[in-house]
Every structure is written in structure tokens, then in C-alpha cells.
Nucleic acid binder design. Structure first.
Lengths: 222, 222
DNA sequence: TGCTTAATTTGAATGTCATTCATTTTTGAA
DNA sequence: TTCAAAAATGAATGACATTCAAATTAAGCA
């Protein structure tokens, strides 16, 4: 009984904090994906999360810190959804190819992503951190299988993250046509040591549909 | 005599404006490369250029606008210096390889560049705009010569710009070792359709020294 | 040379936040 | 119920980027 009594009150605070943190991440996501990271104000985020303006700072060191958490959450959600689908592929190289394409399509088609694209080093690093464990695994597997020829999977994926955001920005701004998605995938596959022909073939394989956003219950957003 | 008389007073304003503009770009470069773009204040830049704080805005729309001009100037200076050296290469692919390596080394070794690296989409686009004419020419020549196999030189170089900044940022932050420069060059050459072996060989060729910064008189800085 | 208008420059004032911090509120044990 | 500690609050602070009314300068004209 003693443990139960001490556990309950202790849990209250922890639970509220968890709820507040969750509410802040969600509010941050909503406001930032509507207005962009810079134009989002801490005031509005705090109000939407129903906490005082100062409270945000007992959960996050700064606005940028919150933005990083928000972005990593979005990316992890996408990474997990991708990961539920790729087991259908026989070719290990296709795991990576599909991941790249999916990120590019999300970044250029989803209106909520567009606002987040500026501050590209923040979002590129969020992709790297959240999707990296999956992507680097795929790169290494495909290299072991002899499909890719790379020596440093981490560096390779880092380059791919930044390049992807660069392409996505230009497609969003209509400097590049939407068809640049295909060519970007081809180039990033070439970067892994595939020939132009191999890369083109791999990039043109059909893509399975992704499970819906909210299917990732552990990492819900929206 | 008439033309001389009207030319003189007219020239006075124009001359002063040219001087002011130059002074502002130079001051912007000095302050931004010392403190970083965000921490540089318009007040300090104006003071260093010896104009009123408001005057900056009759030359540049905003702080970011000034930053873009400053960065493009730095990049153009480097591009021109690179261009004076590459005629010594027989292989057209080497033009591009040397350019990529030189940018990476400048970005990671020069203390003044480090501060400019954050705001990566600004600097990546500055590289693209200033060095693009040279780099895209090199990419297309090397493709015609059968060394590279790409279909869209502009897109390819855009990806390379963002990837380069991503690598430079991590090397600067010591997340990646300086040796990542070599591997980045190799990967970005593979991206152009070279095999791993071809890319490694090309990346390892000796590099000639660059002419000094101030040798580019048309585009002087510092 | 002096007069006049248009263009340019000026820097103090404005407005917008991110962040801080003195108070207030809540918590949980006694 | 009482109390000390922890958390939350939101008004106040400070730091700029940008604006704008006033001052200065330029240059055509008599």
C-alpha cells in the first residue's frame, strides 16, 4: 500500500509534465508548419498548448531546441511508416531508394512540410538523426550485398540529407520542376556507386503506398 | 565641355553611392565573418561602413539581402581564383573535382567561413549562384567528354552545393574528421556517374596552389 | 552666385519577439 | 491542516531589425 500511495502523487506531476511536453510539441508542430519556424511565436505555441509563456522554457532550452524536437518527431513518424513497408522489397538497395523518394515527395507535396524547409540545416539534421538509424542500416546492408559501394555510410547519408533538402527547397519554390524528384533520386543512388543505368532502373521501380500518418501510435502527430 | 560639366555632378552621387555600397558589403563581410550572420547587427555594420543605420536600407532590402550579397561576393572571388588555375588540367572532370575540394577546404579551414556556415540554405545558394556558371560549364564539358554521365547539370550542382555545406558544417563541428573532405569529394564525383575507383583516383590527384585572395581585383574583399 | 526642389542620409523611435524572473500556485509528506 | 519544495505563470526586460520625420546635400536654373 505504501508503494501505491507514493507512486500515485509522484505520477501526477510526471503525468502532467508528460502531457504538457506532448502538448507543446504538438502545438509547436501546428504553429511552425502553418507559419514557418521563424514566424511562429512562443506566445502562440504556449497558448495553443495551454501553458504560460514561461513554462515552455522549463521543457525546452530555446525556440530552436523545440523546433529540433518537433522536426525529429515528424521525421521519425515518417521513418517508421517507411519501415513498415520496405520488407516487401527483395533488393536491399531498394530500401534506401524508397526512403529517399518518400522524403522528397513528403517535403515537396505536403503543405505542412514546406514551411519547415527553410532553416535547412535544422531540418537536414533532424532527418539525419531520426531517419539515420534506418537509412544507415539500409546503406550498409546494400553495401554488404554488393549493390552499393560506399565506405562511410554515415557521411554518405549526411550528404544525402542536405542534398535532399536543397532539391526540395527548389522544387517548392518552383525553381525546379516536380520531375526533379526522379532525377534527384537517380543522382543520390549514383552517389552510392551505382551506374547511371542501374540507378535509373532502381529509381523507376513502383513504390508501395505508405500507411497513414496516425498509424504510428507511439509517435503520434496531428 | 557640356558633357563634362553634367557628368561631374552626376558622377559625384553615383560615386559616393558606389563607395557606400562597397563599404557596406565589406563591413558586412567583416562583421558577419567574425560573429556569424545572426549575431552581426546592422548598427555595427553601418558604423564600420561609416553611414547611418537607416542608410543601409537604401542599399539593401534587409539584413538577409545584405548577407546574400556578401556571401555571393566571397564565393565569386573564390570561383575566379579557382578558374585561373584549372587550365593546367588535361582532364575536364578534374576542373569540377578541384572546385569541390577547394570549396570544402575553404569552408572548413578558414575561420572567417565557419561563421557563415549556419544559415546553410543561404550559403548553399550563394555558392550555387556565384560558382554555378563555372561549375555547370565544367560539368557539361566533362559530360560531353564522356567522363561524367549526367542529364541535368544544374540540378546536380545544386545537390552538390547543399551536400558540401552539410559536410563542411559537420567537419567544422568536429562531428566528422577532416579526412571526410576526401570522402565527400569521392562521393560527389560518384554522383556524376563515375565508378568508385575512377572517383577515388580523380579525387587523389595533386592540387595546384590557389592565387591569393586579393589577386582578384575586380572583386576585391579585405 | 544664390534659389529651389528633389534625392539622399540620418539616427531616434517603433514594434516585435525570445527569454527571464519575482510571484503565485500546486504538490505531497507529515 | 500545514509547510517547504517544485512548477507554472505572465508581466517585464532587452536586443535588435526596420521605419520615418527631419535634416542635409545635390544640381538644375536664373
Amino acid at each position: 500500500m505504501e508503494t501505491l500511495e507514493t507512486a500515485q502523487p509522484r505520477g501526477r506531476v510526471a503525468l502532467r509534465q508528460e502531457r504538457n511536453r506532448e502538448a507543446l510539441v504538438l502545438a509547436g508542430y501546428k504553429v511552425m508548419s502553418k507559419k514557418g519556424i521563424d514566424a511562429a511565436t512562443m506566445q502562440e505555441i504556449a497558448e495553443l498548448a495551454d501553458v504560460g509563456a514561461g513554462t515552455v522554457y522549463s521543457y525546452f532550452k530555446s525556440k530552436d531546441d523545440l523546433a529540433v524536437v518537433v522536426l525529429e518527431r515528424v521525421m521519425l513518424n515518417l521513418a517508421i511508416r517507411i519501415d513498415t513497408v520496405i520488407f516487401t522489397f527483395a533488393d536491399p538497395a531498394q530500401y534506401y531508394a524508397f526512403g529517399i523518394r518518400t522524403v522528397l515527395e513528403a517535403a515537396t507535396r505536403d503543405r505542412r512540410w514546406k514551411q519547415l524547409l527553410y532553416r535547412s540545416e535544422v531540418i537536414a539534421n533532424a532527418i539525419y538523426n531520426s531517419m539515420g538509424p534506418f537509412a544507415i542500416r539500409d546503406l550498409e546492408n546494400a553495401t554488404k550485398a554488393g549493390r552499393f559501394k560506399i565506405t562511410d555510410a554515415k557521411l554518405t547519408f549526411k550528404l544525402a540529407c542536405f542534398a535532399t533538402i536543397g532539391a526540395a527547397l527548389d522544387i517548392t519554390k518552383r525553381v525546379l520542376p516536380p520531375s526533379a524528384i526522379d532525377e534527384t533520386v537517380v543522382r543520390l543512388l549514383c552517389m552510392n556507386g551505382l551506374s547511371q543505368e542501374e540507378a535509373t532502373e532502381l529509381a523507376s521501380r513502383p513504390c508501395p503506398p505508405l500507411p497513414p500518418e496516425n498509424s504510428v501510435t507511439e509517435h503520434k502527430l496531428k
